[in-house]
Computed example of a mutant assay.
Amino acid sequence: MGSFVWAAATAHTGAMMRLPDGGADEARAEQVFNGFRTLASSLKAARPDVLITIATDHFLTYGYEFLPIFSIGTGDRFEGWGEFGVPKRDYKGVAPFGEAVQNGLVAAGFDAVGARDVKLDHAFSCPLQLLLRDWDVPILPVYINCTVAPLPSHARALAFGRALGDVVRTQGVSQRVAIVGTGGLSHWVGTPQTGTINTGFDRRFLELFTSGRLDEIAAMDSDWVIDNAGNGAAEIRNWLAAAGAVNAKGAREIAYEPVAMWNTGIAVTEILS
């Protein structure tokens, strides 16, 4: 039987591997990094056997020729792409745990693809670099399509997370499980609006998330979110899945900063269950 010993949700961008040089952005970036240091410390103290990492992909591992809605890494090792300025790093996995999670999710009605040799882009590697800066723990990469329509609804992502949590609590491979969902918040990628940060959206989202009002987030129209907070904000699905897995009662906001050089509203939270 497994139990969750730690849970978090964070924004990310590959650009955050570069520290802004001076000005307000540098101070904002330092607050973000301090937030990740806080999370890294609490994660290490939780002594997990495995860290479930829920993220997406940016046309490196998955593309139009093969694009699952959900996939589960079922291997013993996951190679990082090392793109977009993120240092290349590979991660250990726990194959029997990945297989148990995939089997359990399929039995629960989620046709999650098993991806034994899945490679990880900055959606995974960027937050992991910051959370595992000077130590290591095996990971389970969980992919949700947040990039190319048709996307799973926010409600479906939340239901997926709740099913994932049920599977973790009933499997017998890994006892102490940590989980992080990562992506967003407001940012536009590859559009004329790139560089825009909607702090109003970010603040409203964080208000709902930290107070545990997940069903209200899940009810948000996907097109409305993308129109108002950018195509990168589609990644709030990963936050919903992580929070759903641990039956979150809320979350603690550790940091939120709109960093102009990173073109992204960056938040760091620890989920409370």
Rank of each mutant, 00 (worst) to 15 (best):
P138D: 09
V137M: 01
S125W: 12
A123H: 12
L131P: 00
P138W: 03
P127N: 03
I144A: 05
T147R: 11
A123M: 07
L130M: 15
P127M: 15
Q129M: 15
A123R: 04
R133I: 02
V148F: 09
L131C: 04
A149E: 02
C146M: 11
R133V: 06
W135Q: 06
R133A: 08
L131H: 11
I139K: 03
D134C: 11
L131E: 05
L120G: 00
C146Q: 06
W135R: 01
L131M: 04
I144P: 15
A149T: 09
Y143L: 09
T147Q: 14
T147N: 13
P141R: 10
F124K: 12
I144D: 11
L128H: 02
L130A: 03
H122T: 11
I144S: 04
S125E: 15
D121G: 10
L120V: 02
Q129I: 06
K119V: 09
P138T: 01
C126I: 10
V137S: 01
K119C: 14
F124L: 13
P127L: 04
L140E: 06
V148M: 06
V137F: 07
F124M: 03
R133H: 10
K119E: 13
C146V: 04
L140R: 08
P150Y: 04
L151A: 00
W135M: 05
L132A: 04
Q129H: 15
P150A: 08
L130C: 09
C146P: 11
D134R: 01
L132G: 03
L128K: 05
V137L: 14
P127G: 13
L140Y: 00
T147G: 11
R133P: 01
V137Y: 14
V137N: 12
L120R: 14
L132K: 00
P138L: 01
R133N: 07
N145A: 00
L131S: 08
P127F: 10
L120W: 02
A123F: 11
V142C: 07
P127W: 01
P141W: 03
P127S: 05
P138G: 03
P141V: 00
P127Y: 02
N145T: 04
S125Q: 12
L120P: 15
L132M: 05
K119S: 15
V142A: 04
P150K: 00
L120Y: 10
Y143S: 14
D121T: 02
L151E: 09
L120N: 15
V148C: 01
A123Q: 03
L120T: 12
P141L: 01
I144Y: 02
V148G: 02
V142G: 04
V142F: 00
L131F: 12
P138K: 10
L128Q: 15
L128I: 07
V137C: 10
D134M: 08
I139R: 05
L128M: 01
W135D: 05
K119M: 15
L131A: 07
C146R: 00
K119D: 11
L132F: 07
P127R: 14
I139V: 12
P150D: 12
V148L: 09
P150I: 01
P138Y: 09
L151G: 02
L130R: 11
V142P: 02
I139C: 05
V137P: 11
T147M: 13
D136F: 01
I144K: 13
N145G: 07
Q129K: 15
L151V: 03
K119T: 15
N145P: 07
L132D: 00
P150C: 09
A123N: 12
Q129Y: 15
P138S: 00
D121R: 14
V137H: 10
